[in-house]
C-alpha cells in the first residue's frame, strides 16, 4: 500500500520556521477550518487530539471543580462513567425505554450530554440543562449539531470515515474551562497529534458530508426495510433502536433465546460483519450497559451499521442470513 504524499510533506513539524513548516501550518489551519465548518463551530475553538479517551477527561474534568456536582447518564461511555466513579459528588441519570436521558436539572452541576448513542442510534430530543455542559459527539460526528449552551464537545474522526487517532475537542471561550492536566503553558491539549492524519480527516469529512447528502435517504430506506422484514418474519425480537431514529445508519436489535456470539459468528461465516452488545462470551461477562439501562433484551443482540456503499443485493443477503441463522440457533 502506498503512503499518501501528505505524510511526506508532514514531516517538518508545523510550528518551525522553515518554508516547509510554514506551508504545513497553512495546510493544518485549512484542515481545522474545514472540519470546524462541517461541525458548526469556530476554528479557533477547536483542538486536535491523538487520543479520544483523553478527550473525555479534558472536556469533562476541565469544567469541574472538586466539590461541584457531576451528572452523567446511564448510557454514557465507560470512560465517562469512570470519571463519574472517581468524582466524589456524582449522579448517574437514568434513561427512558426509548433511551432519552431523564434529567434532574441542577443549576450548579456539570452535565455530560451524549448527543447520540453509538450502539442504538438514539439521539437526545430535549435540551440539556446545567451550569456547564460537556457534549459527547463522538458517535454523531457531522450528523447532529451541538445544543446552544454547550461548554466543551468532543468528536472522533472515525465518525466521518476519517482515520483513527484524530479527535477534535472544542472549548467554548465562555465555558470557564481550565486545563486539568499538569501544565506550564496555555496549551489546551498536550499536542503530539499527527498533522498528516488531521489533513486526511479533513478530506474525509468533506467527502462524507457530500456522500451523506446523496445517500442519506437511501440509508433511511434500508433501515426501514431491514426493520420491516425482521418484524414481519421473525418472532420475539426486541428493537433497541426507536422507530424513525435520528441516526438511521445504526440498528440494534435482540433475538430472544439466541446466543449473541453464536449469531455473530454464524453471520460472519456467511460473509456479514456485525457487532454485538451481548455478553455471551467468556471475554466479557457483563452485557451492554446501554441495553440494560434502556430495559432492552441484551441476549442475542446484533448491531448493524449501514454504510454509504451498501447495495440492495447485500441487504437481501443479510436479511436471508439473519432469518436462517436465528432459526438454526433457536433449533
Amino acid at each position: 500500500m502506498a503512503i499518501p504524499p501528505i505524510f511526506e510533506q508532514a514531516w517538518p513539524g508545523y510550528s518551525k520556521l522553515s518554508a516547509e513548516a510554514r506551508g504545513l501550518a497553512i495546510l493544518r489551519n485549512e484542515a481545522i477550518a474545514t472540519i470546524a465548518g462541517h461541525l458548526g463551530v469556530e476554528p479557533d475553538w477547536l483542538h486536535v487530539l491523538g487520543e479520544t479517551n483523553l478527550g473525555f477527561y479534558l472536556g469533562l474534568q476541565g469544567l469541574l471543580s472538586p466539590t461541584q456536582p457531576l451528572q452523567v447518564s446511564a448510557i454514557d461511555r465507560q470512560e465517562i462513567l469512570a470519571i463519574a466513579d472517581s468524582h466524589s459528588n456524582s449522579e448517574i441519570l437514568s434513561v427512558s425505554p426509548e433511551g432519552q436521558i431523564l434529567q434532574n436539572p441542577d443549576a450548579q452541576a456539570v452535565l455530560s450530554w451524549q448527543l447520540g448513542n453509538g450502539e442504538t442510534g438514539v439521539a437526545q430530543q430535549s435540551a440539556p440543562i446545567a451550569k456547564s455542559i460537556f457534549v459527547d459527539a463522538t458517535h454523531t460526528g457531522a450528523r447532529l449539531s451541538l445544543p446552544q449552551n454547550w461548554s466543551t464537545a468532543l468528536w472522533d474522526s472515525r465518525n466521518w470515515a476519517g482515520p483513527e487517532g484524530v479527535s477534535i475537542l472544542a472549548v467554548h471561550p465562555n465555558s470557564g474551562w481550565r486545563n486539568p492536566l499538569p501544565h506550564n503553558d496555555n496549551r489546551v491539549v498536550p499536542g503530539g497529534s499527527s498533522t498528516g492524519l488531521l489533513i486526511a480527516s479533513a478530506l474525509a469529512i468533506d467527502s462524507w458530508v457530500a456522500d451523506e447528502k446523496i445517500q442519506g435517504a437511501m440509508i433511511s430506506q434500508v433501515h426501514q426495510r431491514i426493520r420491516g422484514y425482521i418484524s414481519e418474519r421473525i418472532a420475539d425480537v426486541d428493537f433497541a433502536t426507536p422507530e424513525n431514529p435520528s441516526m438511521p445508519h445504526l440498528l440494534s436489535l435482540s433475538f430472544l433465546y439466541v446466543d449473541g456470539e453464536q449469531l455473530l459468528n454464524a453471520l460472519l461465516a456467511k460473509g456479514f460483519a456485525v457487532d454485538s452488545g451481548s455478553a455471551c462470551n467468556a471475554a466479557n461477562l457483563e452485557p451492554s450497559h446501554v441495553l440494560a439501562a434502556m430495559g432492552k433484551l441484551t441476549q442475542g443482540n446484533i448491531r448493524l451499521t449501514i454504510h454509504h456503499t451498501v447495495t440492495p443485493e447485500e441487504v437481501d443477503g443479510l436479511l436471508n442470513a439473519i432469518e436462517e441463522c436465528v432459526a438454526e440457533l433457536r433449533g
Binding site: E286, K296, L297, Q299
Partner: peptide, 16 residues
Amino acid sequence: DDPATAPDILAWARMT
C-alpha cells in the same frame, strides 16, 4: 448467577 439474567428476565417478561 449470570449478570445478563437481571435485565433479560425483565425483557423476556415484557416481550412474552
